[in-house]
Nucleic acid binder design. Structure first.
Length: 367
RNA sequence: CCUGAGGUGGCAGAGCGGUUUAUGCAACAGACUGUAAAUCUGUACUAGGUGGGUUCAACUCCUACCCUCAGGACCA
């Protein structure tokens, strides 16, 4: 694989790379590339955490990068998720979340065995003072206002009043990056602020400045609070509409049953001819047509034009915009695609132990 | 620690000592569109921070405690 091919693989479908030149240099240098992405154990694995992330991880694996997933149990605790205890977060990290991510990896053809899963609490314990020293170093190298601007990573509006612990969050996340020694930090675009903090203070803290890569956040299935979306705050609304674990009908989880998938897609917001904000098209673009050789088969009645197969997102979008493709036909096809794609995950969770863990996380997130 | 405001259903947000207990959003069902949305109709459901007390009866009064918010005090 040439350096250019590697670069293209790593950056495919990304929303942002900080910075592309640094990445090129890193590839050229031939140094080992170590990637990381972190997750809170805040609920079930959905298409965003699962498929979107794993598709990228597969690219990275193919490019020969060492991939790491941090199971951020401390962050989960700090953020009062699940039942609010560290113990539960740690337990569910291994019993459920890691398994859910592995299942998702299987769905997209990534190799779960080549992903290193690191549990936050184990890492911190192992490193003893070093980790917390890094947190303090980061805290010393940053300002409160800077940190407050980064706190939207927790699904909150930045700067909104919250407890003191939330200020530690970005410092910890940054320390994670340094402590793990990663040179490629990966996340959804919602976490770019923290990555920028990490890059800003890397030198001062005495660590490698990580390259940050950000993938697209999948849209949620629900109708936006304001429709049509006013142009001036379009960005805010769209990011607020991302798929969310806490709104089960906005998301599809990797273990959802075929019936559940059909129901959710069926209920999804999907205006005819609308291509600017359309979760189903968004999913088609970022999941189905993620790989170049993908295709989507539409099955429909003769009176609606008969079956058709799309081999590029552009064609799909064009027909949809011109109303040559009806939302319902699109929905059916996307639902069918997902049902098939997620089959390995459902199978994986037939295992009694995993199934039990899944039920437990469902219980914990119910309220 | 002090002062003030407040803690109501999934969320937002009123009133009231006693009855069918708002209202909005969300949810669910139906109608209408070959999806969803919008619109119309309907349904259900779910409360009163916690412990005491007053009362025939308390979400509504009293009291203690807890918590949130604003300000003050302390540090000076």
């Amino acid at each position: 694989m040439t350096n250019e091919e590697k670069f293209n693989l790593i950056t495919r479908n990304l929303e942002e790379v900080l910075t592309a030149d640094e990445l090129k240099d890193l590839i050229k240098s031939g140094k080992p590339m170590k990637h990381y992405i972190g997750f809170e154990i805040s609920g079930k694995v959905h298409l965003g955490t699962g498929l979107a992330t794993m598709l990228k991880i597969k690219n990275l694996q193919d490019a020969g990068i060492e991939t790491t997933i941090l199971l951020a149990d401390w962050h989960t605790w700090l953020n009062k998720k699940l039942d609010g205890t560290l113990e539960t977060a740690s337990k569910m990290a291994r019993s459920y979340f890691e398994e859910g991510l592995k299942a998702a990896a299987l769905c997209v053809g990534a190799d779960p065995k080549k992903i290193e899963f690191v549990l936050g609490s184990e890492l911190y314990k192992k490193l003893n003072n070093e980790y917390w020293a890094n947190v303090i170093k980061v805290a010393k190298a940053t300002t409160i206002s800077r940190m407050m601007r980064s706190t939207n990573i927790m699904g909150r509006v930045a700067g909104q009043s919250s407890d003191t612990a939330s200020l530690f969050y970005p410092a910890m996340q940054t320390a994670d990056i340094f402590t793990l020694g990663v040179n490629i930090a990966h996340a959804g675009t919602d976490q770019r602020n923290v990555h920028v903090v990490a890059r800003d203070c890397a030198k001062e803290v005495g660590y490698l400045k990580p390259i940050a890569i950000h993938h697209h956040l999948l849209q949620g299935l629900l109708k936006p609070p304001l429709w049509p979306i006013p142009e001036e705050n379009r960005e805010d609304i769209v990011t607020a509409m991302k798929m969310s674990k806490s709104k089960p009908d906005s998301a599809i989880f990797v273990t959802d049953s075929p019936e559940e998938i059909k129901r959710k897609i069926g209920n999804a917001f999907c205006p005819e001819g609308e291509i600017k904000y359309n979760p189903i098209l968004d999913w088609a673009k970022y999941l189905i047509f993620y790989e170049k050789d993908s295709k989507l088969e539409i099955k429909r009645d003769e009176k609606f034009g008969g079956d058709i197969t799309y081999t590029s997102y552009e064609d799909l979008e064009k027909d949809y915009a011109e109303k040559k493709l009806h939302p319902m036909d699109l929905k059916n096809a996307v639902a069918e695609w997902l049902i098939q794609k997620l089959e390995p995950a459902r199978k994986y969770f037939e295992d009694p132990k995993r199934k039990k863990a899944l039920e437990e996380i469902e219980r914990l997130t119910k309220k």
